[in-house]
Simulated scan of single mutants.
Amino acid sequence: MATIFYARVSTVDQTIAHQRKHAEQAGFKIDEVISDEGVSGVSTKLSERPQGRRLFDMLRAGDTLLVRWVDRLGRNYQDVTDTIREFMRRGVIIRTVINGLTFDGATKDPMQQAIRDALIAFMAATAQAQAEATKEAQRAGIEHARGRGDAYRGRKPSFTAEQFEMVRGALSKGVGVSEIAAMTGLSRQSVYRIKDAPEAAAAGLARWGG
């Protein structure tokens, strides 16, 4: 029974190594890492990604598919829910590093199945909503920067685009500031800066090409 860690990165600021390190620090033992780089989770289904397709070929009943969170599988509600249900149908266990959630098809109790499916739907919907909110914040930040007649770059942000995305995603799931700081390697002040003024934070990234 193998544990396959799937990582997806969509920008140059994100790294596979960071996602794997986070998983191992959380106590997960990984047998193999499969990753897609420079791939959008919004517009490209898991089954259409070069390495994502491999998962459907290599995962067998009893294997575990480990991801940082469900948004690594995708940021489209229908795609994420279809993907998780297909893997469960095959007997694959899906686990997340964040929150330590486990999804499988073992239970036959209809009430437990309903609760499990509702949680999957909620997480998939949150992944899509977070992607849309992040894009909106980035657009607003860019417009804010462009709209200033005296626009200047100012101090370089203390966070990358990946960390900005991670903070926004964790905040939407109710993760505490201290935990987010430890998870992302940022200071509490940086996390609060993103939390309290996401548009200004996005504007800073935009000015510096983030």
Rank of each mutant, 00 (worst) to 15 (best):
residue 115 I to Q: 12
residue 45 K to R: 13
residue 30 I to E: 00
residue 68 R to Y: 06
residue 51 Q to V: 00
residue 74 G to C: 06
residue 65 L to G: 09
residue 39 V to N: 09
residue 168 R to Q: 13
residue 92 V to H: 09
residue 173 K to V: 14
residue 15 T to K: 06
residue 68 R to Q: 07
residue 22 H to A: 13
residue 7 A to Q: 01
residue 136 E to M: 11
residue 24 E to H: 00
residue 199 E to G: 04
residue 186 L to Q: 03
residue 129 A to T: 13
residue 167 V to L: 07
residue 32 E to M: 12
residue 30 I to Y: 00
residue 19 Q to N: 05
residue 135 K to W: 11
residue 200 A to H: 11
residue 210 G to E: 12
residue 49 R to L: 03
residue 110 P to H: 08
residue 107 T to W: 05
residue 138 Q to G: 08
residue 126 T to S: 15
residue 156 K to E: 14
residue 11 T to S: 15
residue 3 T to M: 02
residue 84 I to E: 05
residue 6 Y to N: 01
residue 116 R to M: 12
residue 119 L to M: 12
residue 201 A to I: 01
residue 206 A to D: 08
residue 83 T to I: 02
residue 98 I to G: 01
residue 209 G to Y: 07
residue 99 N to R: 09
residue 146 R to I: 15
residue 72 R to S: 04
residue 136 E to P: 04
residue 13 D to Y: 15
residue 152 Y to G: 15
residue 6 Y to C: 03
residue 64 T to L: 03
residue 63 D to A: 06
residue 82 D to S: 03
residue 35 S to I: 01
residue 114 A to E: 14
residue 52 G to P: 01
residue 103 F to D: 08
residue 82 D to I: 01
residue 2 A to E: 11
residue 29 K to T: 04
residue 132 E to Y: 05
residue 90 R to H: 05
residue 15 T to E: 02
residue 23 A to W: 03
residue 18 H to R: 10
residue 1 M to F: 11
residue 36 D to F: 04
residue 131 A to W: 06
residue 80 V to H: 08
residue 92 V to E: 03
residue 1 M to V: 14
residue 151 A to C: 15
residue 30 I to A: 00
residue 202 A to Y: 10
residue 180 I to V: 09
residue 130 Q to G: 03
residue 206 A to E: 08
residue 24 E to F: 00
residue 42 V to F: 14
residue 16 I to Q: 06
residue 188 R to K: 01
residue 123 M to R: 05
residue 116 R to Q: 15
residue 40 S to D: 11
residue 28 F to Q: 12
residue 170 A to Q: 15
residue 14 Q to V: 10
residue 109 D to Q: 13
residue 187 S to P: 01
residue 210 G to R: 11
residue 29 K to Q: 04
residue 143 E to A: 10
residue 121 A to N: 08
residue 35 S to V: 01
residue 174 G to L: 08
residue 202 A to S: 11
residue 11 T to P: 10
residue 93 I to V: 15
residue 66 L to R: 09
residue 11 T to N: 14
residue 31 D to N: 12
residue 101 L to C: 08
residue 29 K to C: 00
residue 133 A to F: 07
residue 102 T to R: 14
residue 47 S to V: 12
residue 58 M to P: 02
residue 120 I to C: 10
residue 136 E to R: 14
residue 35 S to R: 01
residue 58 M to E: 02
residue 112 Q to F: 13
residue 127 A to G: 04
residue 164 F to D: 13
residue 167 V to K: 10
residue 62 G to L: 10
residue 123 M to S: 01
residue 164 F to A: 05
residue 140 A to Q: 14
residue 201 A to G: 01
residue 182 A to F: 07
residue 15 T to D: 00
residue 79 D to T: 05
residue 167 V to G: 05
residue 178 S to A: 03
residue 21 K to Y: 03
residue 149 G to A: 13
residue 151 A to E: 15
residue 5 F to R: 03
residue 199 E to H: 04
residue 2 A to D: 07
residue 179 E to I: 04
